[in-house]
Design a protein around this nucleic acid. Structure first.
Length: 652
DNA sequence: TTTCAGTCAATAAA
DNA sequence: TTTATTGACTGAAA
């Protein structure tokens, strides 16, 4: 009996031990499984990263073609100067000039591509920037280096602290709300206005910037066009130099920091030096005169421009300024200028060495050259090029022409011809639409020509179409035949100074006529405005209330309803339709935005601690802005609670 | 033809 | 002066 008890007891122990063992093994197995899963995930992540790296490297490879072009250009410059060692010795500038050119090159092609490899002549020069320690070496340049290389590691520049968090963010799935938030914070912190930011970084108006920042749509809901500003903003955030530059621009516009220059040499000096160098080159060309008038003419042109540039810059936009110890626009603009000269020389050399290039192209080139504004207004011309943050817009690596809009108005001239010459034949004509629109805009501003007159006289389009065209030019390859026509017209117009002059006169005459009519009393001011354009419709609170009420009943009103509303409110049918389009669109937009901002929805009541019914009652008495907002808060909250999609909000 | 995305630009608000 | 709002517009897609 006792024996049996002992056996049972022993068996129980064994069973218990075995059970424990089984549990232990199960735990072990689970751990191993988890570890393996983690490891697999890690390896997959690494694989994905490597794949991305490969893609980036391929893109880099693609961009090498441009690098080759730059090398060629620098060789061209070298060829020009190498023949004349005295130029270097007589004029101190070339060193600085080359530094500028180099920083320019670095700016676009990255520090991993030392110039010394391809341009020993430059590497041999003392490439140091005594007064701007951070500008010459790593910091400022390194952050701008990858502008064309989409989202490299992002860690080396590190514009904002949050940049690190961006590293693992998939380019295809940006967190728009966060980007907007970071941009807002950055703008606020640096006191950069939305207008400046929008104009220089996004190419958008202030109102649009405000809208985008306040209500960023989710990435997945954006079209490729809509995504572009976010890509640009991300680039902006990751580029300390651009942020700094923009800050400087803002200060410049506010008159705090009118101009920042490299300490050891003013931009005026740099330009003067270029002038001297050009003069020497001119003398040299004169003495050798091997290629006839063409080169001489070009260099004279350069000389003329340099003189012109020099006359423009000091008084208007370049008061003396202290060193900020960073690469500044003051450094860049001379670089741009030098770059433009390099291109001009290359243009000319191309013309000389490839006389077989398409006559049309050559004609357009020479016309473009003449197109240099004869007397541009300094303020208008020079403020823009200060920016030089435009490379941000190059979301994808783009050819050389992409940088052109950066350059001062005048030096732009070689851009298109470069493209044209390269394309050779007329049928394969390829225009740089961005450059064209940039030049058109600048020319319109310089000559005080309105978009309306330009649109009517040159393109046969309305002002708004012109505005759209100029603000958002499609790449040439994306244009339909009809779309290309507009750019060809613009290009022709740009290449034809008499046309510009004619339009200037036309516009000025129109203004004078209006003024004289007004002063003579023949035309009352209201009438004048009326003649120019229709006054903006401003809906009253009651009208909006009525429309909103109707929207609750019928978000998609029938034509009959629209007509009834128009007649009831004494408005145009189109105004009613537009209101409904806009209202639906904005409800949707805010539907997207709200959840993004209050991601967790943990307490929808916190933003709207009332029922929707109550809110609407409150709305009717509140101010219009709040009405809209609160209304949407409520809609979103309720919709989310009931599991509705944002898209369903309209019919909610 | 309607709808929509995206935007401008006049105007209001801060 | 800067920022936000909003009626209107363009061009594309359905």
């Amino acid at each position: 009996m006792g024996m049996e008890m002992m056996v049972f007891s022993s068996s129980d122990d064994d069973v218990q031990r075995l059970e424990e063992e089984v549990q232990r093994l199960q735990r072990l197995l689970q751990e191993v499984q988890e570890r393996t899963a983690n490891h697999i995930a890690l390896l997959q992540q690494q694989l994905a990263n490597k794949s991305q790296d490969i893609e980036r490297l391929q893109a880099r490879l693609q961009s090498q073609q441009d690098y080759e072009k730059i090398k060629t250009e620098l060789r061209t410059l070298r060829a020009l100067t190498a023949d004349q060692p005295h130029v270097v010795s007589v004029c101190s500038p070339p060193a600085d000039v080359r530094i500028s050119a180099e920083s320019e090159l670095h700016h676009f092609y990255g520090k991993e591509e030392p110039l010394s490899e391809s341009c020993p002549d430059i590497s041999g020069l003392p490439v140091e920037n005594s007064g701007s320690p951070s500008s010459s070496s790593s910091s400022s340049s390194s952050v701008s280096l990858h502008m064309f290389l989409k989202e490299e590691s992002g860690s080396e520049g590190g514009g904002l602290q949050a940049q690190d968090e961006d590293e693992d963010e998939d380019e295809d799935e940006l967190d728009t709300a966060r980007i907007a938030q970071l941009v807002r914070a950055a703008l606020q912190r640096l006191s950069i206005g939305q207008r400046v930011f929008g104009h220089h970084v996004l190419g958008l108006s202030q109102g649009t910037v405000s809208d985008i920042l306040a209500r960023p749509k989710p990435w997945s809901k954006l079209t490729s066009r809509g995504r572009e500003p976010f890509l640009r903003m991300k680039h902006f955030l990751s580029d300390e130099h651009s942020i700094h530059t923009l800050r400087t621009i803002q200060d410049t516009l506010r008159g705090l920091v009118p101009w920042v220059r490299p300490p050891e040499m003013s931009s005026d000096q740099v330009i003067r030096n270029i002038l001297d160098q050009s003069r020497l080159e001119l003398m040299d060309v004169d003495s050798r005169s091997p290629r006839g008038d063409s080169s001489e003419e070009v260099i004279r042109n350069i000389l003329h421009q340099a003189q012109h540039q020099m006359q423009l810059q000091p008084s208007e936009t370049r008061p003396e300024e202290e060193d900020h110890g960073k690469l500044s626009p003051g450094v860049q603009t001379p670089a741009d200028f030098v770059q433009s000269i390099i291109r001009k020389v290359k243009c000319e050399m191309d013309e000389d060495t490839h006389p077989s290039a398409s006559p049309a192209s050559q004609a357009s080139m020479s016309r473009s050259f003449q197109m240099l504004p004869v007397a541009p207004e300094p303020r208008l011309v020079c403020v823009e090029p200060l920016v030089c943050v435009e490379p941000l817009v190059c979301v994808e690596p783009r050819p050389l022409v992409c940088v052109e809009p950066l350059v001062c108005v005048e030096p732009l001239v070689c851009v298109e011809p470069l493209v044209c010459v390269e394309s050779g034949e007329d049928e394969s004509l390829e225009l740089d639409t961005l450059s064209i629109t940039q030049r058109v805009k600048e020319t319109l501003i310089i000559n005080s020509i309105g978009q309306r007159v330009f649109g009517e006289e040159v393109l046969g389009l309305t002002q708004s179409s012109v505005s759209e065209l100029l603000s958002h030019p499609k790449p040439w390859s994306k244009l339909s035949l009809k779309g290309k026509e507009n750019f060809i017209r613009m290009h022709r117009w740009l290449s034809d100074p008499p046309s510009v002059q004619r339009l200037t006169t036309l516009d000025h005459r129109a203004r004078l006529k209006r003024d004289s009519l007004r002063t003579s009393g023949a035309l009352d001011p209201a009438g004048a405005v009326e003649a120019v354009k229709r006054p903006r419709v401003v809906l009253s609170a009651q009208e909006k209330e009525a429309l909103r009420a109707e929207y609750q009943l019928e978000p998609y009103p029938s034509p009959h309803t629209i007509e009834r509303l128009a007649s009831q409110l004494g408005l145009q049918n189109s105004t009613i339709s537009n209101w409904f389009y806009n209202h639906r669109s904005r409800i949707r937009r805010d539907g997207f935005t709200e959840p993004a901002q209050t991601r967790s929805f943990q307490s929808p009541a916190s933003s709207s601690p009332v029922s929707s019914g109550f809110v609407f009652i409150k709305l009717e008495a509140g101010d219009p802005e709040m009405e809209e907002d609160t209304e949407q808060h409520t809609r979103v909250s309720v919709a989310v609670q009931s599991g509705m999609k944002a898209e369903d909000l309209d019919s909610f």
